[in-house]
């Protein structure tokens, strides 16, 4: 709790009265801690590299991600073939793999360049990694802050709603919501209606909008519980009472004093949940409810490749490696952020 009070110094003029020698805010302090954590820095580096890859995908990709060259289906370069003992090049005894060194990682079953598809696939995974949390924070924060701040019956009803939402199997609910969005808003709609606009927006994003919504709407409950708990502990603090006593309106108290002081734990929790969102997208692609083809996504590529893992292991393993690095990076970053921001972990180290 000591740290919560330190955090409060960022919220108002009290900072100058703070006992910290250099008057550093928690955020500056946390940033310094984070920089010292080598694994977290590695995570940030991997994420930044991926972001750059996603942004400059058209310049980086050696080939077009959707051009199918049927003569080259399942082709692989020499180094990939020598890497996997069960892949035998055509021409050798029992060989079945077309050798083509112009595909740096090989080609998929439709003769599309794997490397280019992995590069473009970064767009989907990173978009989900950043937008998924935003949707779930927005819903969860509103529910949690309202419940925690107003308390009483409002709190009771909202938290029971959260309990009930927890009783849904997440995957089935996501699938149900996706089916609902896709069929209600996709296809032929009257131009000008909300359904039409949503459907068009989703189509222009390669089907990602509904993935964001589906994932966000099924994973806000943890945020709601967490932010409610935070609000409950912050609400009783002296600076809130002080703000109230000088006549600050409720909304201003919430936005200026409560919100900044509960954000830390929320950011930590959300960063640690990002790998879950990425794997949701992979799951949705796996069952065919992911992004619209031919937009590549790592999850989709893995599930496609998994079907022929015995003969062409490269088609599943390379996108899996890409997915693995990003998940790794977000986990490192989340752990690092928690150590830097979470008050309880401070006493431990």
């Amino acid at each position: 709790m000591a740290v919560m009070e330190q955090q409060s110094h960022t919220a108002g003029p009290v900072t100058r009265l703070g006992a910290r020698p250099k008057g550093e805010s928690l955020w500056v302090d946390a940033w310094k801690r984070l920089r010292r954590n080598r694994l977290a820095v590695l995570g940030v580096v991997i994420i930044v590299i991926n972001l750059l890859v996603a942004i400059f995908a058209p310049a980086l990709a050696p080939k077009d991600y959707k051009t199918q060259v049927l003569a080259d289906n399942n082709a692989a370069p020499e180094w990939v073939i020598s890497l996997f003992p069960n892949m035998k090049a055509k021409g050798t005894e029992g060989g079945f793999v077309t050798v083509n060194n112009s595909y740096l990682l090989g080609a998929d079953s439709l003769g599309r360049d794997l490397l280019s598809r992995i590069i473009y696939g970064a767009r989907v995974s990173l978009a989900v990694a950043f937008v998924g949390p935003v949707v779930s924070i927005i819903i969860g924060l509103i529910v949690g802050v309202v419940a925690g701040f107003f308390g009483g019956r409002v709190d009771n009803i909202l938290m029971r709603l959260v309990d009930i939402m927890y009783a849904f199997p997440t995957f089935l609910l996501v699938v149900l919501l996706m089916a609902f969005f896709r069929t209600s808003f996709g296809g032929a709609q009257q131009p000008g209606t909300l359904a039409y606009t949503l459907g068009e927006l989703d189509a222009s994003m390669g089907g990602m909008l509904f993935i964001f919504l589906g994932i966000g709407m099924t994973s806000w409950m943890q945020m709601a519980r967490l932010s409610r708990g935070q609000v409950l502990s912050v609400r009783e603090k002296e600076y809130i009472e002080a703000a109230r006593s000088i006549g600050t309106p409720t909304r201003a108290i919430m936005v200026q004093h409560v919100l900044p002081n509960i954000l830390g734990p929320l950011i930590v929790a959300e960063t640690l949940t990002i790998p879950t969102y990425i794997s949701y997208e992979a799951f949705l692609s796996f069952i065919g409810l992911g992004v619209n083809p031919p937009t590549p996504s790592w999850g989709g590529m893995i599930s496609e490749g998994a079907r022929s893992i015995a003969t062409y292991p490269n088609q599943a393993l390379f996108p899996a490696l890409a997915l693995f690095f990003v998940m790794f990076a977000f986990n490192f970053l989340g752990d690092g952020l928690r150590d830097a921001l979470d008050p309880r972990m401070r006493g431990v180290d």
Partner: peptide, 18 residues
Amino acid sequence: AIFGVSVPVIITAPLLQY
């Protein structure tokens, strides 16, 4: 452990099979 959380089942399952 961090390896385990970072690798979704859709990777581990085909990998184990392989």
